[in-house]
């Protein structure tokens, strides 16, 4: 079976004009939403914005709220999974990442949220070779 196009006419998004970060050569750079956005935006441009990412660098918590493009988007969990995997690669293990769909943007909001933040389910999902491959393709196809 092949996967049909769920969003047949995707809107192509332009990259937003970036607010320049002032470089400080001396002080340390705390993790900020912009940095996370930088890491994620090339894959998840349309579902994310800088405002939807909150970071607490001291406690090491990252909360990401994304908005699926369609209410019944069956890809929502896959997108969330991809976000999680990507962030896992980019941040040290002591960061706790919470990923949620933004309120009211998905039909099965609660169950999606539950799945995305359940450690065991995520681990299990990633051990499914098919799912794993899909996530990897999603993340690395544009890089390699």
């Amino acid at each position: 079976m092949t996967l049909g196009l769920i969003n047949a006419n995707p809107v192509v998004h332009a990259k937003k004009e970036r607010v320049a970060r002032t470089e400080d050569p001396h002080g340390d750079d705390a993790v900020d939403p912009l940095e996370i956005y930088d890491i994620l935006f090339e894959f998840f441009l349309s579902v994310l914005s800088e405002e939807s990412i909150t970071v607490d660098d001291k406690l090491g918590r990252i909360l990401i709220t994304f908005t699926p493009t369609i209410q019944h988007c069956s890809m929502a969990t896959v997108i969330g999974l991809c976000l999680r995997v990507k962030l896992k690669h980019c941040f040290p293990p002591h960061y706790k990442v919470d990923i949620k769909v933004s309120p009211g943007s998905h039909a099965n909001e609660e169950s999606v949220n539950k799945q995305l933040n359940d450690k065991e389910r995520v681990a299990a999902a990633l051990e499914n070779p098919n799912l794993r491959q899909l996530v990897d393709e999603c993340l690395y196809s544009s890089e390699l």
Partner: peptide
């Protein structure tokens, strides 16, 4: 589970 995972996996 009636989750998106399973639906998705079945698609594959």
């Amino acid at each position: 589970l009636p989750a998106e995972y399973t639906r998705f996996i079945s698609c594959l």
